[in-house]
């Protein structure tokens, strides 16, 4: 057989075909809402974030200090053993300079890029990173391996969320930047 010998299905529509009503359509916005149980490990993780601390969980058998914390070790498959506070500093494992929002809409010309990163947290086992944002930094100065520190919300504004940390900023920012905060994520959810 050869693909070329067949008449292939698939009728392409242009975006204007929709706008001009050349094709019948129906719309739907599902109401998909959840309240997920945090359970033991994430429940404690969020509570500690509210208190301005990052907590990890230790597996003695694998000798790992794990972040985010978990009540079982996914490698040796037994319960983890102990809680441990880790630092709110870390190292940039990798980063990006994002000009699109979560829904693929583009950030406006005056909106600074978002700076997502994987940050390896000091005190956790090597390579234990979490995804978070970077701030108070010129994107051009970003480098893998850079030391960073968490910038927390004011205690009264914290809600027990990963966003209680506003972003991580370089530890040795030489010049004072006037862009105080990291940009807000765009697009309505």
């Amino acid at each position: 057989m050869k693909l070329e010998d067949f008449e292939l299905g698939g009728t392409h529509l242009k975006s204007s075909d929709f706008k001009q009503g050349k094709v019948l359509t129906t719309e739907w916005e599902p109401n998909l809402k959840y309240a997920w149980d945090n359970g033991v490990a994430i429940g404690r993780y969020l509570a500690e974030l509210k208190a301005g601390r990052i907590i990890a969980r230790i597996c003695h058998k694998c000798d790992r200090i794990m972040l985010p914390p978990r009540m079982f070790c996914e490698l040796c498959f037994r319960p983890t053993d102990e809680w441990m506070y880790v630092k709110d500093t870390g190292v940039i494992n990798t980063f990006s300079i994002a000009k699109v929002n979560w829904d693929a809409s583009r950030r406006g010309p005056k909106e600074p890029p978002l700076l997502p990163a994987v940050i390896e947290i000091d005190g956790a086992s090597e390579g234990m990173g979490i995804m978070h944002m970077l701030g108070e930094v010129n994107p051009k100065d970003l480098k893998i391996g850079m030391k960073v520190k968490a910038v927390w919300k004011k205690p009264e504004d914290r809600t027990g969320s990963i966003t209680d940390i506003l972003y991580f900023k370089p530890v040795t920012a030489k010049r004072k930047t006037k862009t105080k905060a990291a940009p807000k994520a765009g697009g309505k959810r």
Binding site: V23, T25, T26, K33, N38, G43
Partner: peptide, 20 residues
Amino acid sequence: TVPTFWEGAIPVRYVYTFGL
């Protein structure tokens, strides 16, 4: 008094064609 939950949604919207 300890258990907590996290609220969220799947924020999607659809336009269906009717097919041939």
